[in-house]
Structures are given as structure tokens and as C-alpha cells.
Computed example of a mutant assay.
Amino acid sequence: MTDNVEYLAWNNFVQGSYPPAPSLSKVRHAAAIANLYMGAANNGGINSFLTVTPELNTNDVLDALLEMNMIETAAQFKAVIVGLGQHLVASSSDERWRILEERWTDEMDYLDGLTPEADAELMRLLEAHVSEHEEYYAAMNRP
């Protein structure tokens, strides 16, 4: 990202797309969820993402990743869901913690970090999304 508008659009997207408002268009809503996923997964792992976003159910997250054509990322996330033995529904923080404590096994730890391919895919496709919607994101958060 080279010019100021691109930089502003990217920063607004990364910092301003939480919480992902259902009133957004389908693709912007999906991009907001993918952005949350990328941020939390890179700053604590996928278990951390699931912990800090109890308001999101895993089916919606998987759908958002697929909407953004993040095939590698979605496959990795689906492996986590399979490891948990179920989709997680939107819940309270306490309930999400309880479920993860109960279902996340030591054998799943290898799934906790993004693969290099998933990480690259997230960044590439989110940058492309922001570039395609640059005017919208550049104007975010302006008075």
C-alpha cells in the first residue's frame, strides 16, 4: 500500500471493522469477520480468536471465510471445528471459555496458529478487498 488513501483505507478497515455490523453488505460483513479472524489468530491463535469473539458462531465465521474465497483459511478453520466436535454458537464469554476448556485438546494445539498459506491468503485477499472498496474504507470514521 503506497499512497495515503490506500494507507488510510487499510487502517480504517483494520481498526474500524469491529464489531462486524450485520447491516453491512454481505461482502463487507464477511471481510470484517475475516479481519477479526486474522488479527486474533495472529495475536494469540485460533483458540484466542474463539475466546475473544463469543458473539460469533463458528458457522458464520466459516461462511465469511468462504464468501471471501479464503479456501485455505476456511479449511484450517473447519479442521478446528471438527476437532471441537461441533460448531460453536454465539454465547457469553464465560460459556465460550467453558466449552473451549472442555473441548480443546492438547492434540489440537497444532491447529492453533495460522499456517503460512492461510496467513498469506488472508492478507492478500483482505488487501484486495480494501483496494476494491477503497473509497468506502477511506471515508470510514470521518465526521
Score class of each variant (00 low, 15 high):
residue 139 A to F: 06
residue 23 S to N: 01
residue 101 E to N: 10
residue 30 A to P: 11
residue 119 D to N: 04
residue 73 T to A: 04
residue 62 L to N: 06
residue 116 P to Y: 08
residue 27 V to D: 15
residue 124 R to G: 09
residue 52 V to A: 13
residue 98 R to D: 08
residue 13 F to M: 09
residue 72 E to F: 05
residue 45 G to H: 14
residue 136 Y to T: 11
residue 114 L to G: 04
residue 127 E to F: 06
residue 34 A to Q: 07
residue 62 L to G: 01
residue 101 E to L: 08
residue 109 D to N: 15
residue 133 H to C: 03
residue 91 S to V: 05
residue 134 E to H: 06
residue 6 E to P: 01
residue 105 T to P: 07
residue 10 W to Q: 07
residue 131 S to A: 11
residue 94 D to R: 01
residue 38 M to G: 02
residue 123 M to C: 12
residue 16 G to V: 02
residue 61 V to L: 01
residue 47 N to A: 05
residue 30 A to R: 07
residue 62 L to S: 06
residue 93 S to Y: 13
residue 58 T to L: 09
residue 123 M to T: 15
residue 118 A to D: 09
residue 23 S to M: 00
residue 100 L to S: 06
residue 94 D to M: 02
residue 134 E to M: 15
residue 17 S to E: 12
residue 8 L to W: 06
residue 43 N to C: 06
residue 64 A to W: 07
residue 82 V to G: 07
residue 37 Y to E: 08
residue 47 N to W: 15
residue 56 L to D: 02
residue 99 I to G: 02
residue 107 E to H: 11
residue 37 Y to V: 14
residue 6 E to G: 13
residue 21 A to L: 02
residue 9 A to D: 08
residue 89 V to S: 08
residue 22 P to S: 04
residue 97 W to H: 09
residue 102 E to S: 15
residue 74 A to R: 03
residue 59 N to T: 07
residue 105 T to M: 11
residue 66 L to S: 08
residue 136 Y to D: 12
residue 126 L to G: 03
residue 83 G to Q: 10
residue 123 M to G: 13
residue 113 G to S: 15
residue 20 P to G: 02
residue 89 V to N: 09
residue 70 M to R: 06
residue 86 Q to S: 12
residue 96 R to H: 02
residue 59 N to A: 15
residue 53 T to N: 11
residue 107 E to Q: 14
residue 134 E to N: 10
residue 84 L to Q: 12
residue 73 T to Q: 01
residue 60 D to A: 06
residue 125 L to A: 04
residue 82 V to K: 14
residue 108 M to I: 07
residue 16 G to C: 01
residue 130 V to P: 09
residue 109 D to K: 14
residue 44 G to Y: 13
residue 84 L to F: 13
residue 115 T to E: 05
residue 16 G to E: 00
residue 70 M to A: 05
residue 71 I to R: 12
residue 24 L to P: 04
residue 111 L to Y: 10
residue 60 D to N: 02
residue 73 T to S: 03
residue 29 H to P: 00
residue 8 L to T: 15
residue 72 E to R: 11
residue 39 G to E: 15
